[in-house]
Design a protein around this nucleic acid. Sequence first.
DNA 1: CGCAATTGGGACCATTCGGTTCCAAACTGG
DNA 2: CCAGTTTGGAACCGAATGGTCCCAATTGCG
Lengths: 197, 197
Amino acid sequence: MARPREFDIDEALEGAMNVFWTKGYEGASLQDLLDAMNIARGSLYKAFQDKRSIYLAALDRYDRTEIQRAVDVLRDRSVGDGAMRVRLFLEDARAAVARRHDRRGCFLCNAAVDRAPMDADVQAKVFGMMKRMESAVAAALAECMQAAQWPAKRRAQTALTLTNAYLGLRVLARSGSPAKDLAAVISATTQGCGLDE
Amino acid sequence: MARPREFDIDEALEGAMNVFWTKGYEGASLQDLLDAMNIARGSLYKAFQDKRSIYLAALDRYDRTEIQRAVDVLRDRSVGDGAMRVRLFLEDARAAVARRHDRRGCFLCNAAVDRAPMDADVQAKVFGMMKRMESAVAAALAECMQAAQWPAKRRAQTALTLTNAYLGLRVLARSGSPAKDLAAVISATTQGCGLDE
DNA sequence: CGCAATTGGGACCATTCGGTTCCAAACTGG
DNA sequence: CCAGTTTGGAACCGAATGGTCCCAATTGCG
């Protein structure tokens, strides 16, 4: 019917996600977003409503891409047994730091700290993602040499502990802890959970 | 020599700390700070230099008060054995939520996420506080029925795991997790670390 | 081809931001 | 009691904020 959009909306969203991921909500100015999205003010406010809804869309995108990747690893039997998959899941936080000094941390975790307290929609999305991760960890534990024979309750508790540890790791990463410190936390955590024997 | 200050500087700092604690750095406007500190713009810029240095001073105050309190509990033999003190240390995160729906989380942890990545001074303070907490946890473990006889390395690892779990807990609290979820994480963590037998 | 629609982008908006300046009022030391 | 200094507070600052509007350019449809 009319002139088609010139930019890829998901590509633009990826740019926005990276800005929010790095700078947080308040720290990201409209100008920052426009630069990263490579579009003009007018186009932005036609494709989205306002800054907040871009943020929400960026969170959704993070869910669809990054969180989904983590969940996939945790559920992928071809990767190894459950313990291996959990280790890999945590390892990802360390690898991001080691690879490229990536100090963005986890967007989910950042959002939990800087927006969830004052935005119910953000909180709901954050909860959803956390629950999804926790379920995936639990699923991995159920397919793990050591944990498979534990009572269900202990597995559930361990899934909770591991998900919680993941959050802590991402906070450490964002605050600038070196990769080796993260490695220490990871091995301490998996050993503590009895996943290394 | 001259007219004395009319406001208590530490009292004002307490107000500023609460604002930053709740809203984060970028989320706290000068006006928010002035309201909470009950002083005028001019007075503020005479007592401090700028917004950033108020934030740094607020972080220091958090260290001197809240962190110190946590460290004191962890080191206070009259509270109970090490395991008990660690449990109380984690329990504090849950209690804050249960008591008054306090969703501020931990200022240290918030700062780690929202300022440490872009401010080296904040990062240094954050690291310092984390290390202090970790040492205190380690000290508690050394005076704990179960952990005292562990090899030193395992105790160090456990201290790391517990400090990391604390960060995760505070993220959960700030994101709005109910107190009972926090309780589940706490008991799962202490049990996982072998502190409950 | 030409109409209708929708784009991208610049101009523009009020508001708020962090920060400075100025000055009468208030206090202290001599 | 007065000289000298520092206060608190209002007025003011330019810059940047998030958001709107308008219009030429571009496209699909009839």
